[in-house]
């Protein structure tokens, strides 16, 4: 281990520890804020884990998030908490496999379309089930989980997700993703199962997102399909990951933190015009920073030093 990487690891651990001790010296409001922020950090990082290297834009974030939350609400009284989380992850995995197997062999746009309507489909199915089979819409969650507990779980999940994302970058899977990004024909002729790699990554990403929903569920005590399948969640995740930059480990995190604070402030001050402002910000981001702030910062930085960075999508020499 070089001195520099040792330093980064140490820094990561110190920051993590400082964040973990936060509930002991900060008030209830800060913890609530941090739950939301950490949740979005995980969502954006998990989203970028799949969508960054494959360029498949997933609009299904809230479908998995909602599946997680709803599974917890259904099972919270029948199973121990750990098993409830496990069950939620499993349901998310199964849905991800079905969606992935159906669409990931095809061109990316089919996946986008499928994921676009997935949240609405799951919401309507859950609503139909609750109204027709159980006869109630909406459920109470009584779990002995404090908001500090939720925060710690999310923090652990965030650390695990970042670690996982980092590990992929140095694994064979990471190499496979780079090769697929460069040239799918070469990839398959080298023995890479392209659809398999995409499916694996999509499933991991979906399971993490499902867990975020599951862990956050006890916060609400009462949930309804329209609450947990709110498309704004998918939208925010997407903006945050794109603003930070999906090609870099820290990109989604750096996008999530400022945007989360901005959106909190906006929704508190402009509750009615919130979606409009959100949409306009997003359009602006796509126009101004197509590769995210980190890439833009690197470009400006290298320009200042007179170094040219080759564009990522330049292709081969011929």
């Amino acid at each position: 281990m070089t001195l520099k990487s040792f330093g980064s690891v140490l820094f990561f651990l110190v920051v993590l520890a400082a964040l973990a001790f936060l509930p002991f010296y900060a008030g209830e409001y800060v913890v609530t804020l941090m739950i939301g922020m950490t949740g979005y950090v995980v969502l954006a990082t998990a989203w970028a884990l799949f969508s960054g290297p494959t360029r498949y834009i997933s609009l299904a974030t809230v479908a998995f998030f909602g599946i997680g939350a709803y599974t917890v609400s259904v099972l919270s009284e029948t199973l121990p908490y750990v098993l409830v989380l496990l069950a939620a992850a499993l349901v998310g995995l199964v849905v991800a496999l079905v969606v992935g197997l159906a669409t990931l062999r095809l061109a990316g746009v089919y996946f986008v379309i499928f994921s676009f309507g997935l949240a609405e489909l799951v919401r309507q199915l859950v609503t139909w089930y609750e109204v027709n089979i159980t006869g109630t819409l909406g459920r109470y969650i009584f779990l002995p989980v404090t908001s500090d507990g939720i925060y710690w779980q999310l923090l652990a999940l965030a650390a695990a997700t970042l670690l996982f994302s980092w590990a992929i970058g140095r694994s064979r899977l990471g190499l496979a993703l780079k090769v697929i990004g460069d040239d799918e024909v070469v990839a398959s002729h080298c023995g890479i199962n392209i659809a398999g790699v995409k499916l694996a990554l999509f499933s991991v990403s979906a399971v993490i997102i499902t867990l975020v929903g599951a862990i956050q569920a006890p916060r609400w005590t009462y949930i309804e399909p329209s609450m947990v399948f709110n498309p704004t969640t998918s939208f925010l995740t997407l903006i945050m990951a794109l603003l930070g930059g999906v090609d870099r480990l820290w990109g989604p995190l750096l996008g999530a933190i400022p945007l989360f604070l901005l959106f909190e402030w906006l929704s508190a001050n402009f509750p009615n015009h919130y979606p409009i402002i959100l949409g306009l910000i997003f359009i602006a981001i796509v126009f101004v920073l197509p590769n995210g702030v980190l890439a833009a910062a690197e470009r400006i930085f290298s320009k200042r030093r007179g170094v040219t960075v080759p564009a990522a999508n330049q292709g081969g020499a011929l």
């Binding site: 780079k178 990004g181 460069d182 024909v185 070469v186 081969g316 020499a317 011929l318």
Partner: peptide
């Protein structure tokens, strides 16, 4: 391949 297929980012 007939037209060389390098993996440019590697």
């Amino acid at each position: 391949f007939q037209l060389v297929r390098a993996l440019p980012s590697l």
